[in-house]
Nucleic acid binder design. Sequence first.
RNA 1: GGCCCCGUCGCCAAGUGGUAAGGCAGAGGUCUGCAAAAUCUCUAUCACCAGUUCGAAUCUGGUCGGGGCCUCCA
Length: 481
Amino acid sequence: MNLRVFNTLKGHKELFDPIVPGKVSMYVCGVTVYDYCHMGHARANIVFDIVFRYLQFAGYDVTYVRNYTDIDDKIINRANERGIPSKALAEEFIQAFDQDMEALGLRKPTHEPRATEYVPEIIALVKTLIEKGLAYEANGDVYFSIEQFPNYLCLSKRNMEEMLAGARIAPGEQKQNPMDFALWKAAKPGEPSWDSPWGAGRPGWHIECSAMSSALLGDSFDIHGGGRDLIFPHHENEIAQSEGATGKPFVKYWLHNGFVNVDQEKMSKSLGNFFTIRDILEKYDPEIIRFFVLTAHYRSPIDFSDQNLNESRQGLTRFYEALHHATNAIAELSIPAGDNAEACQLEKHFRDAMDDDFNTALAIGHLFDGVRTINRLVSEKKFRKKPELVATVSALHQKILELGDVLGLFGSAPTVWLKKQNLQGLNSLGLTEAAVEELIKERLLARQEKDFARADQIRESLAVQGVELLDSPQGTTWKIK
RNA sequence: GGCCCCGUCGCCAAGUGGUAAGGCAGAGGUCUGCAAAAUCUCUAUCACCAGUUCGAAUCUGGUCGGGGCCUCCA
């Protein structure tokens, strides 16, 4: 085990060495539940699902916390717009989030706390910060005083003077310094609120993550993840709150994933150029989304486009076809037991790639090598009579499934997956399976009568519509081009 | 303006000092009645310029181009 991770705090890769040997505690910022998730959320969650899976695969006992922020200005505003209680709105989008994540095949985190379940912890944390002189109350609001925390901006590496130049105090705020941020907000009429030493109010945006992470993982933990856009101010503020309160290092490794772009521009709500997960899933299999995300390194930007998703579909199809062929090729054969050099080699390459800051793109490249080997061996003459080849194909097949599972890939039965893609494609071409099957029958007759002109005519007519006919000793099948 | 990131084959994308993974697309061969799939072979000197070095896509400086954060954002 030689995992190296890129730590935003340090600005470079370093050896991963958890606080407690053999155990990993990780916290990932979830979503503020006021709307459907888009592709950017999908990426972040898939990325950290892989971190979670790989750490488990590497033998760690992982405690993974991913929160729901279910109290926030945006939730309140959206609920008011719709004339429903903010709790109902939050509930609706928590369910939507859960559905989306399940559809994408994410493993359930160990804990999925909600901010509203941790209000007592939040209040206690704010109290501590006030007692330590790091926060102050003003008209029912409580603010964190960044001047009292010298390490402020250590994560985002910004310059305080420059930041102050552009900082503003919003109307109604009682900040001593424009860069101070709210820990607790006094309730306005009609807003959801909790009693506190400062009157009725609710948590500010950042405090809930500090409270939930320390409640579930302790004052110091190993990994904290999220999208790059959370580095400032969210994660910066978490550090200030948590380290300010405990005096201990908050997080050992900060991991941040890159954005999803559309036409080279960040996909975001404010730009309005986003696609929700549910919209995308209408058109693409969830595994294609996952494959797409994993074919780039998690810190790089990825460009969301139909062309790129279609390439992912093709890549994934290549895997499933190879797995399908392998299954058929070794069916009903006795497989020699024992380690297999090719399979061991593949696993080593895979681990090396993943150990290098979760380089899933490289890891998938290695899995493609395994596919090529399988295809090559299976097509050798008298394959079934060569035990060493059969053993290698069997072992590689197993290994690809095993390693694929670490990436959350290849979990479907190949025939089912391939069929589904084909039917979906057929559907989008405006054809029916029955119509295709009918033409295949007709062509079969033509071929039996050696009427190859007619046979080729049928092939060609389907081909121009986008359907490819595949002849094999077992009969004729079809696939979408 | 400040801070940060990126620019690798037609496209996507690894590679952060030792001589360019992989996928898609393309060309040719094998296979096939034909075709597809598969497989084999072939296709890049890494935006540009100047340095450091025995050696750089990889380090330094500069130029050009793109993007991000600095306000809610995965």
